[in-house]
Computed example of a mutant assay.
Amino acid sequence: MSDTTHSLLPTSAETSHFVRQTGDEPPAQEAPIRAKRRPQYGQIVTGLVAIALLVLFVQSQARNTNMEWGVTWQYMFNPVVLQGVGVTIQLALFAMLISIVLAFVIALMIQSNNKVASVIGRAYVWFFRGVPMLVQVLLWFNLAVLFPVILGQETNSLISGFTAGLIALSLAESGYMAEIIRGGIISVPAGQTDAGVSIGLTRNQALARIVLPQSIRVIIPPTGNQFIGMLKATSLVSVIGGSDLLTRVQLIYGQNFKILPLLMVAVLWYLILVTIAGTGQHFLERRFNASQPGSRKARTTAGLGTTITRTIIGGAPWRK
């Protein structure tokens, strides 16, 4: 070894300087260090202005005699209105469940290697996304014009306003949900499916055990948004007397001519339903998305990170 190379290597005296001796450990830190945040004056001012404008708006509407809030509160929990709320919830839930099942099949058809199935799936999405939902409601309600008799019974007796609305909402929504599910599937790299096949899984098993569990977190947020849209879209069946919330409200103000107060009843109930659905979506996203602070995996990871930090700093034993 040359003298130059030997001179670059640290001596034993120099290397001993980097070895931590017993008793040199830094003191254990029981509480985490928290950085002090600076006051956000612009945020505070904006919030105060927004609150002031909201108070002024509420105050102006509360004192507006034309709103007739007494009539609104009188009919808020009217049995007829509550029946309409129940029908609205049923329409939204059943239509969403049916559309998800149909959309899953259509998404698989589009992703299939079978060209015929792929074309049929794309044509399905093209048609039901292209035709307005209101037009589909009217078409299904007037199906008796094309087919007066179905399965030996009159079409008008088979397809009521509720049934026509349910069919139209389900088919129209399935066109959108098919693209959402397809987007969730293609968000998972194709190499993961190939890896599953390489260890002996069939492609269907790889889809069920590898792809779908990972795509759920991508599918849930837009699905929750679509369900909220479905709650509002149920009002379209009012044009065919679907017995939903808006239909019941229209029947009432058609008798007492209190149009604005009764419409406010519908507005408040739709806001309540949307708020409940949005809250459920929030907790569902936290449950399935590991990057959200409240998810189970995030809590587990955070606990593990705290354990590792305390072990490194304070010399505490590892915890399982």
Score class of each variant (00 low, 15 high):
L245P: 07
A233H: 00
I186L: 13
L158S: 07
M76Q: 07
G241F: 08
S12K: 13
N113W: 09
A208V: 14
L97Q: 01
A190Q: 14
V249F: 03
F18W: 14
A298L: 01
G303N: 13
I276A: 06
P132H: 05
G200R: 07
D194K: 10
V85E: 10
M230N: 11
V249T: 11
S16G: 11
T46N: 11
Q292D: 06
L93N: 00
Y75V: 05
T46R: 11
L268A: 12
L143N: 00
F57D: 04
A233I: 01
V131C: 05
I219L: 08
T193F: 07
T279G: 08
M67K: 08
F147L: 14
Q40S: 14
I180Q: 07
G191C: 07
K36C: 07
S174T: 03
V249Q: 01
Q250E: 13
G130S: 05
L9M: 10
P222W: 06
M177C: 09
I308A: 12
T193R: 11
G175W: 03
L236F: 04
Q90E: 13
V80F: 09
W140K: 03
H6I: 15
P293A: 06
T202H: 02
I100E: 02
S170T: 02
Q90Y: 12
I308M: 13
V105D: 05
G303K: 10
A172G: 14
Q43M: 13
I167G: 02
D194T: 10
Q43L: 14
Q61F: 10
L260T: 13
W318E: 14
G303C: 04
A302K: 12
V87N: 10
S174M: 01
K232A: 00
Q136H: 00
F162A: 00
V197M: 15
F77E: 08
W126K: 05
S187G: 04
W69G: 06
R217A: 08
I51T: 11
E173Q: 12
